[in-house]
Design a binder for these strands. Structure first.
Length: 190
DNA sequence: GACACGATGGGCT
DNA sequence: GCCCATCGTGTCT
């Protein structure tokens, strides 16, 4: 299987967010392999974006978004849910792409076990659920997607034209259509 | 140190 | 549709 290389992520954040739709996310642990086709992402454009954790410049948490593209940025939301982002920006900038939903492919049983639900629709729809199904936690913060147990396949499958909308759950930045998704039953909302 | 605040989701109505 | 748990992080003192 061919996986995405560093140069794929070393492009403008918006471009990478759209390009990730249709690619497959892979996650290997001692429990087994799970995978899913990415169907929903959001771009967080670093210091240009009031909604990005990187907006006010680097902090211990956000420093990773200023670092080399192709690494994972994981943070804890509301004390109980993890959110997985992929660092993506052109040289000298900052930014990351939030993974919001995937269409489960391999390892559905393992995902169901981790999630505690049976419905395939609820396995990885929403950033918190996706992280739970893929066993992504703060321990994976900084992981290199081009070298480790989490990676993204280069092959792209699109079942419908990519749509855009405002991002979900924000105060600021509601006027920018920086959410990308493939309309269908696997995305978190229309 | 203290404190306010979520890029959410599960449960209940 | 409404309510709210829960804790790492950033900001202020």
């Amino acid at each position: 299987m061919r996986t995405l290389s560093r140069s794929f992520f070393a492009r403008p954040t918006l471009q990478v967010a759209e390009s990730l739709i249709g690619r497959t996310l892979y996650r290997l642990t001692g429990e087994g392999l799970v995978s899913g086709r990415i169907v929903e992402t959001e771009a967080y454009c670093g210091t240009d974006d009031p909604s990005s954790h990187a907006f006010k410049g680097p902090t211990p948490r956000s420093a990773i978004m200023f670092g080399p593209p192709g690494h994972l940025y994981v943070y804890l939301s509301y004390g109980m849910h993890h959110c997985a982002n992929i660092v993506a920006h052109s040289s000298g900038r900052a930014g990351a792409v939030l993974l919001r939903a995937v269409e489960p492919a391999e390892g559905k049983d393992l995902m169901a076990q981790r999630r505690g639900v049976d419905s395939p629709m609820l396995l990885a729809r929403g950033p918190g659920r996706l992280c739970r199904a893929f066993a992504v936690s703060l321990a994976d913060n900084g992981a290199d997607l081009t070298a480790g147990a989490i990676s993204i396949g280069a092959r792209r499958v699109l079942r419908a034209p990519i749509a855009r909308s405002a991002r979900v759950g924000l105060r600021a930045g509601m006027d920018q259509p920086w959410r990308f998704y493939e309309p269908g039953p696997w995305t978190s909302r229309p």
